[in-house]
């Protein structure tokens, strides 16, 4: 999944991808804050429609992204079972929060290239920690490549076709062991490169883009509205009487994005 997310963030160009990173991250943070504090199912449903619209507008394979967004809901199963059927709306609230928060994060990482994302993180976190995050992210792709080679070798030599589960587990474990050894060898090469280039706890990174054109202002406005509607419980329920409009807004954005996707230049994006 991570390699696909990286591909979508870097290779796709859409109105969402073109929004400057700074305002986009602020807008996502505001939506996330609204989802975290909300106890309103209608608001959460409206936010789900809105985020689905954003995913469609970004030209992403929406079924795959939505499935990934629902993954945290599956992992809630033990807690929902323990809670029983006494409070179905409470269960829906947890599922709604999990899905909306996951979709918000996915909408950001699928439309923002990782160097830009890490550059923004560098402003709030220690440089050494962000460097480690960057190296881990980079290593992930190297390991994926090595893993694919090892799996291919195992398959060709019949290592994965063994009927005996113990034998198969041993083969897989040895494959992972080989990936670790190869990965650590590569990391030692990388550390020599870092040492050669005089690394002292800070990698170079681009700055965060801050522009305020209509798309950025629109994203910020949506973020502010989401935070306000989400926090309605804490500000005296003033906005609670208008939450239906948020749901309609989410529906309209979804319909507009679907129309843009279907009727837009080049027609619908096809993914294999």
């Amino acid at each position: 999944m991570i390699e696909l997310v990286d591909f979508w963030a870097i290779k796709l160009t859409s109105p969402v991808h073109r929004v400057a990173a700074g305002p986009k991250l602020v807008a996502a943070g505001l939506i996330l804050a609204g989802v975290i504090v909300s106890r309103d199912l209608v608001f959460l449903a409206g936010t789900f429609l809105l985020l689905t619209g954003v995913i469609l507008l970004a030209g992403l394979p929406w079924v795959r992204v939505l499935l990934a967004g629902f993954y945290p809901a599956v992992l809630l199963a033990p807690l929902l079972i323990a809670q029983g059927l006494g409070n179905p709306l409470g269960g829906l609230l947890m599922v709604g929060k999990a899905v909306d928060a996951a979709l918000t994060m996915l909408a950001v990482v699928t439309t923002t290239p990782y160097p830009v994302l890490f550059a923004a993180l560098r402003r709030v976190g220690p440089g050494l920690l962000v460097d480690t995050l960057f190296v881990a992210y980079r290593s992930f792709f190297i390991l994926i490549r090595v893993t694919q080679d090892v799996l291919l070798a195992l398959r060709l030599r019949g290592g994965l076709g063994a009927r005996h589960w113990g034998r198969r587990l041993t083969n897989i474990s040895q494959g992972i062991g080989l990936v670790i050894i190869r990965g650590i060898d590569l990391s030692e090469d990388f550390s020599r490169v870092l040492r050669l280039r005089g690394y002292r706890g800070r990698l170079g990174a681009p700055g965060t883009e801050w522009r305020f054109r209509p798309p950025e202002l629109g994203a910020l406005l949506l973020g502010l509205l989401a935070a306000a509607f989400g926090a309605e419980y804490f500000v005296g329920d003033v906005l609670a009487a208008y939450n239906g409009y948020w749901f309609v807004l989410g529906g309209l954005l979804l319909a507009g994005a679907a129309a843009f996707r279907v009727l837009g230049k080049g027609g619908p994006v096809r993914w294999r």
Partner: peptide, 15 residues
């Protein structure tokens, strides 16, 4: 040790 640790840490975290 910093450079070596960072690189190995990245690989293990990726794993």
């Amino acid at each position: 040790e910093l450079t070596g640790r960072i690189a190995r840490l990245g690989v293990v975290a990726a794993l």
